[in-house]
Amino acid sequence: MSGNIIEVSGLEHRYGDFAAVDGISFTVEEGEIFSFLGPNGAGKSTAINVLTTLLRLQKGSARVAGFDVAAEPSKVRASIGIVFQEVTLDRDMTCWEILEFHGCLYRMPHKERRSRIDELLDLVELEGKRDTLTKHLSGGMKRRLEIARGLMTRPRVLFLDEPTIGLDPQTRMRMWEYIKSVNEEGTTIFLTTHYMDEADQLSDRISIIDHGRIIATGRTWELKNMLGEDLIYLETSDNVIAGTALRGMEEVTDIQEKSKGFVALVNQDGTHLLPRIMETLQGKGIRIHTVNLKKPSMDDVFVHFTGRELREEGAESPAAAHSRAIRR
């Protein structure tokens, strides 16, 4: 069943002097959920626009569903579905009309169109909204309708550009369920997101993208494992000396400085290592104010590879805001 449904090599896209996408190469296997994870402005949308033929290919090569995006754009178009980052529903059309219009655009036969619409309204639980104008739908319903539209033509690949942006936590979780069930039925999913938890929860594989470049690619656990077994966060009376002391330990693979303390990446079970670390520091006369031990998250992976927080600029994920509120 497998094989590459998307093959990108040396893709570059410039707006004037600015390289929005700066030479990326990757492949997506048929049937998987593949994510581009990166901050706003990393080049995710530009890449998706080239792959979906909305932007002309400038440099490099890209094949989607077996067709070259530059040579056979209309064949690529016929084999993909897209859910755009912003809502792109006509406010004055009903749910049914939105899907009917889309089916007609792709020249689906009348009978197939009608049965597919029923099927999809059912899937995204909008049967009751069939004749409702889209301006009367909630944000989550609009998104679901857009996903239904993306699936209308039974595409081989569904592109989702920031599928849960601006949705509340419960709605996001439900969206993830829909996306997973669509994938289980055999549709390959290519999604971009700047939400760590989204990439983590949904993806089979992730490419971390920043400043137009792919920094790391792998399965979520592979990426996390690159950081080691555990992360130990410490605030001490002298972080510089403490950091230097820990660098000397062979179990510590890296030290990352934070505003008040630092994080030690360790390649062993942290619960066993922690007493030794504390002994070492106390031996140097350093007092420990705060200790925290955790498994690496996608946030940590991102910080590790890019050297900065994902959401320095732009919105933060509702989940992050949520957990912060609880911590207080």
Partner: peptide
Amino acid sequence: LMREVMASP
């Protein structure tokens, strides 16, 4: 709204 049309065949 035009992106849908422009991205279609």
